[in-house]
Amino acid sequence: MSDEFESATAEVPKGWYPMPDGRQRYWDGVRWTENFTTQPPTHQKLEKRHRNLVLLGWALGILVVVILGVAVVRILHLESQQQQIYDQIRRDIDNVRP
Rank of each mutant, 00 (worst) to 15 (best):
W16M: 05
N35S: 14
T38Y: 11
R23Y: 09
P18M: 01
G61Q: 05
E47V: 07
P98W: 11
E6A: 15
E79V: 06
D92T: 11
R74N: 13
L55M: 07
V30I: 13
W16S: 02
R25H: 03
W27N: 08
Q84P: 03
L56W: 00
L63K: 04
N52Y: 05
D94E: 11
K45Q: 14
F36D: 06
S2E: 15
D3I: 13
I85E: 10
E79S: 12
L60Y: 04
G15D: 04
R90Q: 12
D28P: 02
V12M: 12
V65I: 07
L78T: 08
R25L: 00
Y86W: 09
Y17L: 00
V73R: 10
L55G: 08
V72D: 01
R91L: 13
I89D: 04
Y86R: 15
P13V: 08
R23C: 01
W27G: 03
Q88A: 15
G15A: 08
T38P: 07
Y86P: 06
Q24I: 11
Q39A: 13
E79M: 11
G15Y: 04
I85A: 14
G61R: 01
K48E: 05
P98I: 04
R23L: 06
M19V: 07
R90N: 12
Q81M: 07
L46W: 07
Q82A: 11
V64N: 00
V96G: 00
Q24N: 15
D87Q: 13
E47S: 06
R74Q: 14
D87E: 06
D28M: 00
Q39V: 14
V30P: 00
E47D: 09
D87T: 09
V64P: 03
A71M: 09
T9R: 15
S7I: 11
I93C: 02
V72L: 00
V54L: 05
M1S: 14
H77F: 14
G57V: 01
L56G: 03
A10L: 12
L56S: 05
W58F: 08
G61P: 01
P40D: 01
Q44G: 09
S7E: 13
M19W: 05
Y17M: 01
E4C: 12
Q81V: 09
P98Q: 11
H77L: 13
H50G: 15
V30D: 10
Y86Q: 13
Q44I: 14
A8N: 10
T9H: 10
L78G: 02
W16C: 03
V30C: 09
F5C: 13
S80D: 08
I62T: 02
L63N: 02
W16E: 01
A71T: 07
S7P: 01
T42N: 07
N35K: 14
T9I: 15
E4G: 09
L53S: 03
G15V: 08
S7C: 08
L46K: 14
W16L: 08
T42V: 12
S2F: 14
I75N: 15
D3W: 10
K14C: 02
W16Y: 04
S7Q: 15
A10Y: 06
D94Y: 04
T33E: 00
R91D: 08
M19S: 09
P13I: 01
L76V: 12
W16Q: 05
F36H: 11
S2H: 15
P40R: 08
T9E: 06
V64W: 00
A59G: 05
I67F: 01
N35P: 02
A71Q: 10
P13C: 06
W27H: 04
R25S: 10
K48P: 03
P13E: 03
Q39S: 15
